[in-house]
Amino acid sequence: MSGKEVSREKRNTFLYLREKIGFKAPPKELQERLKEQNEIKKKILEALKTGPKTVPEIAKETGIDTYTIFWYLMTYLRYKQIEPVEKTDEGYWKYKWVGGR
């Protein structure tokens, strides 16, 4: 059997697991976390629409604390969704959104 044939057989195995464990929806805690992540991302994206910004600038615009903003920015950096652009005299980097999901 070729690799391609094997892989075709394995499509949608997540449905198999859903059925096996009786999955209806993600646990509430996970749903809430996902909702919060999406809201934070939306706010960060909105703030970066007008150009590259530092962490304190994004925090000020979004009302989210700097620690959380930076943690998410560095996660986006891992997935190449943001890029550092330039460093300010105060020692903060400005970040710009470069796309992706």
Binding site: T54, A59, Y67, W71, M74, L77, P84, E90
Partner: peptide, 13 residues
């Protein structure tokens, strides 16, 4: 994890 050596509170160098 970061683009440089930065502090976690606010990304300042």
């Amino acid at each position: 994890p970061y683009n440089s050596v930065l502090r976690p509170l606010d990304g300042k160098e």
